[in-house]
Design a protein around this nucleic acid. Structure first.
Length: 283
DNA sequence: TGTCCATGATCAA
DNA sequence: TGATCCTGGACAT
């Protein structure tokens, strides 16, 4: 269950474990079998994340200068976990649960298993370009340009809650970061993009740039400031599966950590939207 | 054992 | 807007 931080973390782990090495590639389930057999034994150059998209680069090694024209880049494995997909590290060894195992990548020391992805496909360089071009700025990428997101936001009548889930606005943001960044910046989720100030967008963006790398580093989403931590407030730490300490996500009916009002929730565009109606005033 | 739900996105109508 | 796809964990029966 991934927002961008999960994908970037996985890209780093995969690169660390496999980059420059020949890997065993298989699809015990069979749904990626043809591509897997094509890649089996190939060298994984590196893994890279763009928003919630993961790309495994199997480009051939560079050819010595001037010998022949350089080989075309690719192939790439394009992975998108969707809502329920998981990529997990397991001990190398016999495969269990083959019926759902879409893709397995393994060396002598490491093995990663992909189950339930929305996408797992072999693509070429043109498709990679098109994919990346279709995404908005990714707060986890150093070259990201927040103005590209702002151009969409400030021209849109859609709410900022809707816009933040739009991967053309900010790639990698999902339901948790949406709720949490709007809470932290005290912005009502229904605020139309075209009434949001450039300064407010910048606060949202800068906060994402501050929060998401922590998510990559810790492998969980923590958004609560030190003064609202369990220790500071004498509260039991959260034991939820997604793990992190948050202000509003999945806290409907519980007291807001800042003002005490019950956290609100409603269904919005097919997802649960959480906010505090006192801390996040309409304007 | 069954039902519901989830950090997502696409497609048809 | 609703149906659909993919899997597994929590909870109810």
């Amino acid at each position: 269950m991934p927002e961008g931080h999960v994908i970037h973390r996985l890209a780093g782990e995969l690169t660390l474990a496999f980059a420059g090495r020949s890997v065993a590639v298989s699809s015990p389930q069979g749904r990626f079998a043809q591509a897997a057999s094509l890649l089996d034994g190939a060298v994984l150059r590196r893994a890279e994340a763009y928003g919630k998209h993961l790309l495994l680069d199997f480009s051939p090694a560079a050819v010595p200068e001037g010998l022949v024209s350089p080989p075309a880049p690719g192939p790439f494995v394009h992975i998108h976990l969707g809502l329920i997909g998981k990529l997990r590290w397991v001990h190398p060894g016999p495969v269990e649960g083959a019926a759902t195992l879409r893709l397995r990548i393994a060396s002598e020391e490491h093995a990663a298993e992909l189950r339930g992805p929305q996408t797992c496909a072999l693509i070429g360089p043109d498709e990679v370009d098109a994919l990346v071009a279709g995404l908005g700025p990714d707060p986890l990428r150093p070259d990201a340009d927040p103005d590209r997101g702002w151009r969409r936001v400030h021209r849109s009548e859609r709410s900022i809650a809707s816009l933040l889930m739009d991967q053309r606005v900010a790639a990698g943001v999902g339901n948790i970061y949406r709720a949490e960044v709007l809470f932290r910046q005290r912005i009502h989720p229904d605020t139309p993009g075209n009434t949001l100030s450039a300064r407010a967008w910048r606060r949202i963006w800068d906060d994402l740039v501050a929060l998401m790398p922590q998510g990559v580093q810790h492998g969980r989403i923590d958004t609560v400031r030190p003064e609202h931590s369990p220790e500071a407030m004498g509260r039991d730490p959260r034991v939820d599966r997604h793990g992190g300490e948050v202000y509003v996500y999945r806290r409907a009916g519980q007291p807001c950590l800042v003002c005490g009002r019950e956290v609100s929730v409603r269904e919005f565009e097919g997802r649960n939207l959480y906010w505090c109606s006192r801390c996040q005033r309409r304007r």
